[in-house]
Computed example of a mutant assay.
Amino acid sequence: MSFKNKLLHLNFVHISKRCYTFSIILTIIGVISLAVFGLNYSVDFKAGSNVDISFTKNVTSAQIEPILENIGILEGSKITPGVDRMSIRFDEVLNEDQDHQLKGEILKLDSGASMEINTVDPEMAKELAANAIWAVLLSSLGIIVYVGIRFEWRFAIAAIVALLHDAFMVVTIFSIFRLEVDLTFIIAVLTIIGYSINDTIVIFDRIRENLRFAKQKTRQDLIDLVNKSVSQTVMRSLYTALTVFIAALFLLLLGGASIRMFSLAMVIGLLFGAYSSIFIASPLWFVLKSKQKNKPAKAS
């Protein structure tokens, strides 16, 4: 039997039990990692300066470090080299004199170099962080309302759990591996939320269509309905995920340093988005629906 045929005949509801275990374990690891290490915030979310330098010749980190040490700004700095480019992040806001000295020393190394300095003060950093959190929360709330109106509350709960699962998995990976979180990361999370809910709604729509004509006398009838609905849409979900994944992967491999974290978050989020739509959202709806069917009828 081919891989496609095996996939179409999977018992998705049964497999979901293992998927729940995997996701719960990863969630616990993520909570511990966030509690102990937190996130590696970029200058976008904490006070500091970020210097982007474009060179016309090859300049290495080893040549830059003595310059920073002489100016007195090496401590608390992070150098990220690239092709003809270099990014230097400082935990402290550089003053005007330090900016001037750094620019002068860079021009001594490469007279054709250009330098751009972005500074975020503490108040602006707090405002950006708060706005990012509100953006994620409000978008999630809007999706709950939309799915609740279009379908029913069980679909809405299953969708939001899958959606938050995908976003948190990305946050977990970034926390564990100490990857930098900047504004592009927030954009990626919001994009992942949109992708995840779109993929989930396609499966939910098929479940709703099949509900119109399916018998629902037993728990097994409901299991068969969910498995049938997922199998009818699983290839579409995988093809869509693969298409977007390839684009995001090449963006990660060939894109510049400025969008690297965005691309990486997209790659991770797309994988978890496809996984949760198939193995988390629909089986969770089944759990909620089966509990309703198991409730005893009220006496009239």
Rank of each mutant, 00 (worst) to 15 (best):
N5W: 03
K6E: 10
L7Q: 10
L8G: 03
H9C: 04
Y20R: 09
I25Q: 07
I25E: 06
L26D: 06
I28G: 08
I29D: 02
G30F: 06
V31H: 12
F37L: 09
G38P: 03
K46G: 05
G48D: 12
N58P: 00
Q63T: 05
E65M: 13
I73Y: 12
G76F: 07
I79G: 04
R89N: 15
D91W: 02
Q98Y: 04
Q98V: 12
Q101G: 03
I106G: 02
L109T: 09
L109Q: 06
I117F: 05
P122N: 07
W134Y: 15
A135Q: 10
L137R: 07
S139F: 12
G142A: 07
I144K: 03
E152L: 05
W153N: 02
A156E: 07
A158L: 07
A159Y: 07
A159R: 10
V161P: 09
A162M: 04
A162W: 03
F168V: 02
V189C: 05
L190S: 09
I192H: 11
G194F: 08
S196M: 08
I197D: 11
I201V: 15
D205K: 01
R208K: 15
R208D: 01
E209R: 09
R219V: 12
Q220Y: 11
N227S: 09
M235G: 01
R236A: 01
S237E: 00
L238P: 01
V244L: 13
A248V: 10
L253Y: 11
I268W: 08
P283K: 02
F286M: 14
V287E: 11
S290D: 14
Q292C: 03
K295P: 03
K295I: 05
A299V: 13
